[in-house]
Write a protein that binds this DNA or RNA. Structure first.
Length: 299
DNA sequence: AAGCTTTGCAACCGCGTCTTC
DNA sequence: AGAAGACGCGGTTGCAAAGCT
C-alpha cells in the first residue's frame, strides 16, 4: 500500500518546466511522437504518458501558433465547421494549420461565454429571465439542445437595412445561438445598441429547467442583428454582408485552409528493428522541425 | 491603488477505441 | 476471443493576466 502511494506521489502534475520540455523534446527527437508511457517507465519524467502527449501536441509540436489570436478567417472556419461537425474539435483543428483541438475548444468556449454574457446584458431588464451566465459553465453550453424553439418576429419600425416588411421566422435556439455568435464578426455589437426596433426576440432559456413561461428572456436585438437573424435561411447569407474587416473577405463561404490530412488515427508502433534507428521516426517531420522548437519559458 | 470580475488558456480527467499479446 | 495497456478525444477545472470599478 505504501509502495502504491509512493508510486502515486511520483507522478508530477501542474505546469511544465523548461527542463521537462527539453526531456520530452529529446524523447520525440529520438523515438518520435509515440510511446508516451515509456517516458515515465524509463524514468525520464515523472509525468504520465497522457500528460506528455498532451504537452507535445498542445505546446511543443513544431509550427504551432502559440499565443496567436484566431484570425477572422480562422474564426469563420471554426464557426462553419462547428455547425457542420459539432464539437469535433480535433477534426476541426485539422482544417486550421498550427491550431490544436484544445485551441479550437478554448476558442469556442470563450465565444460561447461571451455570447452568454452579451445575451444576458441585453436581457438584464427582463426580470422574467432566469438565465444566469454565472452558471454558464461548459455544462450550460452543452445543455442548449433541449430548449424550446424560439420565435423571432420582426416588425421594423424604422427604415433600416433591407427589412421592409414583416418577417416572422422561427429558429431553434441552437441556430440563434450560433448565428448570434457570428454577429460580432460582422462588426455588429450587440451591446450598446439602441433598442428601437419594433419587436422582441423571445429566446429560450439555456438552463436545464423545463418548459416554463418564466424561463423566457426577452432579448432586444439591435436592428442589424434582427436583420441578420431574419436571413439565416438565405443561402446567400454571407454574400449580403460586407466584410467587417476591409482587409479580409470575411464572408465568402468558408473553405478549409487545407484538406484535413487523412492521418491515421494512431501513430505507427515501433518494431524491434526500427527501434535502433534513431531517425526513423523523424521522416514524418520536416528536416528542420526541431530548429523551430523554441524552448518553452517556464512560468 | 486596491479589490473584484472576467477572460484566456494550460492541464487534468474520464471514457471510448484501438492495438498488442 | 478477450484482457490489458496505450492512445485520442471531448469536457471540465484552476489559475494567472487583463480589465473594470
Amino acid at each position: 500500500m505504501r509502495k502504491m502511494e509512493a508510486k502515486k506521489e511520483e507522478i508530477k502534475k501542474g505546469p511544465w518546466k523548461a527542463e521537462e520540455d527539453e526531456v520530452l523534446i529529446n524523447h520525440v527527437k529520438r523515438y518520435g511522437p509515440r510511446d508516451w508511457s515509456s517516458i515515465r517507465s524509463k524514468g525520464l519524467l515523472q509525468r504520465t504518458g497522457k500528460s506528455c502527449r498532451l504537452r507535445w501536441v498542445n505546446k511543443l509540436r513544431p509550427n504551432l501558433k502559440n499565443g496567436c489570436k484566431f484570425s477572422a478567417d480562422e474564426e469563420r472556419v471554426v464557426i462553419e465547421l462547428q455547425s457542420e461537425f459539432g464539437n469535433k474539435w480535433a477534426r476541426i483543428a485539422t482544417y486550421l494549420p498550427g491550431r490544436t483541438d484544445n485551441d479550437v475548444k478554448n476558442f469556442w468556449s470563450s465565444r460561447q461565454k461571451r455570447l452568454a454574457r452579451i445575451l444576458h446584458n441585453s436581457s438584464s431588464d427582463a426580470s422574467t429571465s432566469s438565465f444566469n451566465p454565472k452558471s454558464s459553465s461548459s455544462s450550460h453550453r452543452s445543455k442548449g439542445k433541449n430548449v424550446k424553439p424560439i420565435r423571432q418576429s420582426c416588425k421594423p419600425t424604422q427604415g433600416f437595412g433591407l427589412v421592409e416588411e414583416e418577417v416572422t421566422v422561427s429558429y431553434s435556439s441552437d441556430q440563434v445561438h450560433d448565428e448570434a455568435l457570428r454577429l460580432p464578426d460582422l462588426g455588429i455589437k450587440l451591446e450598446h445598441q439602441p433598442f428601437t426596433f419594433g419587436t422582441d426576440l423571445v429566446l429560450a432559456d439555456f438552463s436545464d429547467s423545463h418548459d416554463d413561461a418564466n424561463q423566457q428572456a426577452i432579448i432586444p436585438f439591435s436592428p442589424e442583428s434582427r436583420e441578420l437573424l431574419a436571413r439565416l435561411d438565405d443561402p446567400f447569407y454571407y454574400d449580403i454582408l460586407g466584410p467587417a474587416d476591409s482587409s479580409e473577405p470575411l464572408f465568402a463561404l468558408p473553405q478549409p485552409f487545407f484538406e484535413p490530412s487523412p492521418a491515421p488515427r494512431r501513430c505507427r508502433h515501433v518494431s524491434k528493428d526500427e527501434e535502433h534507428d534513431d531517425d526513423v521516426f523523424l521522416h514524418d517531420f520536416p528536416a528542420d522541425m526541431f530548429d523551430q522548437v523554441d524552448p518553452i519559458r517556464s512560468p
